[in-house]
């Protein structure tokens, strides 16, 4: 079965446990993802599948892409991603993979998405620099301060943290717990936050570095 699915972020809310504690959850709409192309060891040298998510109008799809989707017998999708496969069997093109087939409640997942764009930001927000005094004639409240030494080395070191564009980059949040799955609604409830705004396209996959519980 594939180890990754594509979804959409619906937003955050909270769930009550029976004991009355509250779990903060992010709700994702994951799948169903049709298999658009299969990559096998013979032809491609590695095993994976290309899966799609969402709907795209036929007339908004380029001719070559239309053919690509038609070959698999799939309606044009908004996004395409490659998903690694576990196990011997490869899914067939056109097969629709749902959340319930891939993830289980209590499991760990990694979520990859594009973070919210913050625009051009100063060092205080962007790199958590401290700020200067606010009063007593201070003129360096949110200034970055010194960027280096003196005549030697006579330059600013590469990688010096400075103001600049922040956010709108691809980020992965690892080891989120799957709190609940609503398979019919294709919903996945994860404990904690996920990058991106509501409506963002996210990739959910089995956690790569999750610690496996020792059997006692």
């Amino acid at each position: 079965m594939v180890k990754l699915l594509i979804g959409r972020k619906l937003g955050m809310t909270q769930l009550f446990t029976e004991a009355g504690t509250v779990i903060p959850v992010t709700v994702l709409e994951v799948g169903p993802c049709p298999v658009v192309q299969v990559r096998d060891a013979v032809k491609d040298g590695y095993r994976a599948v290309q899966i799609g998510f969402g709907v795209r109008k036929e007339k908004r799809t380029s001719k070559p892409q239309q053919g690509h989707f038609r070959k698999a017998g799939v309606e044009p999708c908004r996004v395409l991603r490659e998903a690694p496969v576990a196990g011997e069997e490869l899914p067939k093109p056109g097969e629709r993979i749902t959340v319930g087939q891939v993830f289980a409640e209590g499991g760990k997942v990694d979520v990859t998405a594009t973070t919210k764009g913050q625009g051009f930001q100063g060092t205080v927000k962007r790199h958590h620099f401290g700020r200067g005094p606010v009063t007593h004639g201070s003129k360096n409240t949110r200034e970055p301060g010194s960027t280096g030494q003196h005549t030697w080395p006579g330059r600013v070191y590469k990688g010096k943290r400075m103001p600049g564009h922040m956010g709108a980059v691809r980020r992965t949040v690892k080891n989120l717990t799957v709190v609940k799955i609503e398979a019919e609604q294709h919903r996945l409830f994860l404990k904690g936050a996920v990058p991106g705004p509501t409506g963002a396209i996210v990739c959910v996959q089995h956690a790569k570095t999750a610690r496996v519980m020792k059997k006692s």
């Binding site: 619906l10 809310t13 709700v27 919903r187």
Partner: peptide, 12 residues
């Protein structure tokens, strides 16, 4: 937002 409202209603 409407979809989240459905989810919250089950908790209420």
């Amino acid at each position: 937002m409407r979809k989240l409202d459905d989810i919250e209603r089950t908790q209420m």
